[in-house]
Computed example of a mutant assay.
Amino acid sequence: MQNRALEMEVFVSIVEAGSFSAAARFFSMSPSAVSKLVTRLEKRLGVQLVVRSTRSFRLTSEGADFYKTSRAIVQEIAEAEAKIARKAEAVGGLLKVSTNLPFGTHVLSPLVVRFLDENPGMRIELEFSDESVDLIAEKTDIAIRTGVLRDSSLRSRRLLGSPRHIVASPDYLSRHGEPTRPEELRQHACLTFGGRPHLNTWQFKDPADGASVHIDVGGRLVVNNGESMRHFALQGAGIARLSAFHISGDLTEGRLVRLLVPWDAGETEPISAIYSAQTHVPQRIRRFLDFLGRSI
């Protein structure tokens, strides 16, 4: 298939530069290659475009018409490319972001306000959901999720690793006492997640010998998101395991108390921003990811 746009560009360059050799230098081609290109173009069109002599050339009337049309097309192509390039570099437009409820509520929401203040040309559609999201089908630019990422077809950027803490409210502890060893959790009301059994196995580290200890916890109250778990923990409904980013204010204000601190295994919850593996990531996505990287 012929590259007709290139043929037109070369032909316009020959006319405007005044020689085949000047056009050849501009396109990093040999003069003979430029001459063959014009010959091939004339053969396909079925007309003579250029009358050549040893040191010069002149356009035929068909060549002049072709030059005029080609020049207009080449200019339109250049303007179209420049327009797209300007749009790609401009930080503006709509950014659709999906985030789980705890991170969105306690970390992302305040940052979004600041980001919009710093980027007046942008809009953000923020969706709170703990469910997995199909970025392409749901036209989502960025999804922020916790835990190990399993979809290798997506790009990701690690935002932070948040320590997990075992906590309860002072009210719960006053009524049920404080566990001093992980196995005592089996006698307590622990708040658990439905549909994600791996989150209901809590890891500890024996302070005496460093051995790993895993306890499968259970209770009478099962929830499907971390924010609900935090709410019920604050109400004294049971013992919970929650990320530090989620409950740092509650710990500071004494609304929740850390438990089994000597047995802390140092477990962290990875939090990442995921986005489609595009060849060229739009500027609005890059800007938001860079902002999160600086701010969290």
Score class of each variant (00 low, 15 high):
Gln48Met: 05
Val74Ser: 03
Ser272Val: 08
Asn224Asp: 12
Phe103Tyr: 15
Ser21Met: 09
Ser212His: 07
Gln187Glu: 14
Leu160His: 08
Arg86Asp: 15
Ser129His: 11
Ser28Met: 10
Ile247Asn: 05
Val74Ile: 12
Lys68Ser: 12
Glu253Trp: 09
Ala240Tyr: 01
Arg86Ser: 14
Lys83Thr: 13
Gly63Glu: 04
Arg255Asp: 11
Ala265Trp: 07
Arg155Tyr: 08
Gln2Val: 10
Leu185Met: 03
Leu94Val: 11
Val107Trp: 01
Val281Met: 14
Val51Phe: 09
Val38Tyr: 01
Gly218Glu: 01
Glu89Met: 10
Tyr172Pro: 00
Phe27Asn: 03
Gly92Met: 08
His246Met: 11
Ser152Phe: 06
Lys83Gly: 04
Asp206Gln: 10
Ala90Glu: 15
Ala88Ile: 08
Leu49Val: 11
Glu62Thr: 10
Leu59Glu: 07
Gly161Pro: 04
Phe66Pro: 01
Leu116Met: 02
Glu131Leu: 13
Phe291Tyr: 15
Phe20Val: 15
Pro120Asn: 06
Asn3Gly: 00
Glu267Leu: 14
Ile166Leu: 15
Ala237Phe: 04
Gly195Ser: 06
Phe103Arg: 05
Ala233Pro: 00
Val107Met: 08
His188Tyr: 12
Pro179Ile: 05
Glu62Gly: 03
Arg287Trp: 05
Glu16Arg: 14
Ala90Lys: 13
Val222Asp: 00
Ala277Leu: 04
Gln48Arg: 15
Glu253Asn: 13
Asp134Lys: 12
Gly254Asn: 11
Glu253Met: 07
Met8Leu: 06
Ser156Leu: 10
Asn224Leu: 06
Ala5His: 08
Thr279Cys: 04
Val217Lys: 06
Ala88Ser: 13
Ser70Phe: 03
Gly238Phe: 01
Leu251Met: 08
Leu259Met: 09
Val38Ser: 01
Gly254Lys: 09
Arg284Lys: 14
Leu94Trp: 10
Ala33Gly: 10
Gln2Pro: 14
Leu108Arg: 04
Ile84Gln: 14
Ala88Lys: 14
Ile215Lys: 03
Ala273Glu: 03
Leu251Pro: 08
His280Glu: 12
Ile239Gly: 01
Ser129Glu: 11
Leu289Ile: 15
Ala24Asn: 01
Leu108Pro: 03
Ile215Arg: 03
Pro282Gln: 09
Ser56Gln: 14
Val213Trp: 06
Ile142Met: 08
Leu221Lys: 02
Ala277Cys: 05
Ser53Met: 11
Ala211His: 10
His246Arg: 06
Gly104Met: 02
Leu260Tyr: 13
Leu185His: 01
Ser162Trp: 02
Pro102Leu: 12
Ala5Val: 15
Gln187Ser: 13
Arg258Cys: 13
Gly104Arg: 00
Glu16Pro: 01
Ala208Pro: 03
Ser21Ala: 15
Leu94Thr: 11
Trp202Arg: 09
Arg40Val: 07
Leu101Phe: 05
Pro163Ile: 08
Asp117Pro: 02
Ile142Thr: 06
Gln278His: 07
Phe103Ile: 06
Lys139Ile: 07
Ser152Ile: 06
